[in-house]
Amino acid sequence: MINTLGSFSAIVIVLWLLLSVLFAILYPLIKGFLFALHPRFGSALLLAYWMGPFILSVLSTSFLFVPELERVLVDAHCHEACANHVPLIDSVGLASFGLAVGGLVLLFLAVRCVQTLLQSRQLKTQFRAFARHCGAYHLLAAPTPLVFTLGWWRPKIYLSEGLSAACSDEDLSIILLHEQAHQERRDNLRLLLARLSSAILSNSLAKHIMSDLQLLTEQACDFRAAERFGHVAVAQTLLKVKRLMSLPSATSVEVCTAFAERDVEMRIKALLKAQCRVALRPWQVAALASAMLMSLTLLISPLHHGSEWVITLLSSDNVHIH
């Protein structure tokens, strides 16, 4: 049992790490394509791409451990006896090490998840105590111009009186439509899943993709608001709110220019060139899904041989045939 669990865990972790690095390196090649799509599709595809290494590693390793699938998915080969087999580590020490590493990674993910959940609950409790429920949103009696959506599964919109007072009715409707889009799409949950899926990578490797995912997510919500009010009106509101928040008295935050981000600029430019963004057709989505499925099945054979080769290398003569 420990050999099976240890081998499974070691293969998942190594594969997850390798695929994550590979996907991060290959990302610049597909970035242009993603940003040419309508942000609704761009953000969904980028999320799928970024979660790909984790999903692929878990699924392909699970398939790898079904001996019946070997006949279909793995090139015919024999070790001591010609029978269906899975790559197993025979050394208990090595298998225990694999299991321990897998357990630690799982523990780290669970701790991170619980910690974020607690923080989210805490913020919700705090703001709920101060907010007044006004239909679709909660109003905060504060002069700081701020609006945000808080929560994962049933997110709530919080709007400050400062922002409400400074905006026209149309601006306010655009802002609320944008935030409602976050609510419906459960964007905080999507970002959490993306962050957890890339937890095995260093922050420097993951941060560009994460910030692009955030940008595409915001653009998707901008475009949703633009469906009703028009792209120019949403761009104007964005600029207005950004100007409000850039006032030194508005946020009392010393903003360091080294952290200067161009997200608002990119969002406004995207809105003004909305006609250049194309939507994916159903057949294209089906083709992408088929390509994913095919790559998953094609991965099994090299993964099987690769795992056997690595296990043999680590513990010579320890590959166990079942």
Partner: peptide, 18 residues
């Protein structure tokens, strides 16, 4: 970033010229 989405990035700097 995984808890809260804000309408505009309040902390991102952008100069008056931009």
């Amino acid at each position: 970033e995984t808890i809260l989405s804000s309408f505009v990035n309040v902390a991102a700097d952008i100069d008056q010229a931009s």
